[in-house]
Computed example of a mutant assay.
Amino acid sequence: MTPPLALSLGEPAGIGPEIVARAWAALRDGGPTFVVIGDARLVEAGGAPVAAVFDPAEARSAFPRAVPVIDLPTAVPATPGRPDPANAGCVADWIARAVDLAMDGSAAGVVTAPIAKAPLYAAGFPFPGHTEFIADLTGDLPYDGTRGPVMMLTARDLKVALVTIHTPLAEVPELITADRVIRTARVVHETLRRDFGVARPRLALAGLNPHAGEGGSLGLEEVEVLGPSAAALRAEGIEITDPLAADTLFHEEARAAYDAAICLYHDQALIPVKTIDFWGGVNVTLGLPVVRTSPDHGTGFEIAGKGVARADSLIAAIRLGAEMAARRRGLK
């Protein structure tokens, strides 16, 4: 029987506890089953009954009646909308515990509720975010494939992967190198086959400049880096386009021509995802030895504790995490 997913509770002063409670209410009858790693009091305050468990194996029997929680209390009480760096260590510990459970096979994969970076940084957290932290935690675990991490966002029929992520726009061109583009495309190609069941992935490569550079008249990146990278990938047997104008890459007819788009910077990827499905997008980390998904939104401090937060994205992340984990285990 497939183990449950391990769900780290995220920022204790954010909407994490509320959306976890709502996700459980939506999934309690049919699953997928998850076990929360975090403060049980916060989940209960979010509006759901709680069952304290000590092992993920206990989660399946508890799930229909309550949220199973491996209870790791916060250092100080959490106030909705008011993050406290004193709880940053707890947030990091919840993520690490969830990853440990996935690495030892006790959990099928990891789902992460949103974190707030400012209080983590104030407490000395040395990683840019979830993605890099989880990559570090899993760094010693063997992995059969091209190593990530690569960030992918999914929404309905669109999958976009990023060559650069939280990078100032002025710094993006110098980071668009052949090595980065080729590695990102390899990771996406392998992941589509292994975790999404796509036998022959078709990749689209976005251009950096307007009109994909117009043959070099509007920028040279397409001529000097992106085009040669695409040619090298095709020589490896990966189906990928030459760089395409990003302004015509994401409409419905265009999306039917590829399985995932390789995008070059944050907004190039996230604007179409959030336009197509603002509430239901999912963040997936590719190229790691554990499955990791997350809702595609932040901590929602401005609405935390008000009972209005929507769990659509978290529910989608849980479902996708379970599907990916099942494929890795050969169960789908």
Rank of each mutant, 00 (worst) to 15 (best):
G215F: 13
G216M: 08
G216V: 13
S217V: 08
L218V: 03
G219E: 12
L220M: 08
L220V: 08
E221A: 09
E222Y: 08
E222T: 12
V223S: 09
V223Q: 12
E224W: 07
E224F: 01
E224N: 12
V225K: 01
V225W: 00
V225H: 04
L226E: 01
G227I: 00
G227H: 01
G227K: 00
P228D: 01
P228M: 03
S229W: 00
S229Q: 03
S229H: 00
S229F: 00
A230N: 06
A230L: 14
A231H: 14
A231C: 07
A231P: 07
A232C: 07
A232D: 08
L233Q: 05
R234N: 10
R234P: 10
A235C: 06
A235I: 06
A235V: 07
E236V: 09
I238L: 09
I238F: 07
E239D: 11
I240C: 05
I240P: 00
T241D: 00
D242R: 04
D242H: 15
P243F: 11
L244V: 13
L244K: 03
L244Q: 04
A245D: 15
A246M: 08
A246D: 09
D247L: 13
D247Y: 15
T248D: 08
T248I: 15
T248M: 13
T248G: 13
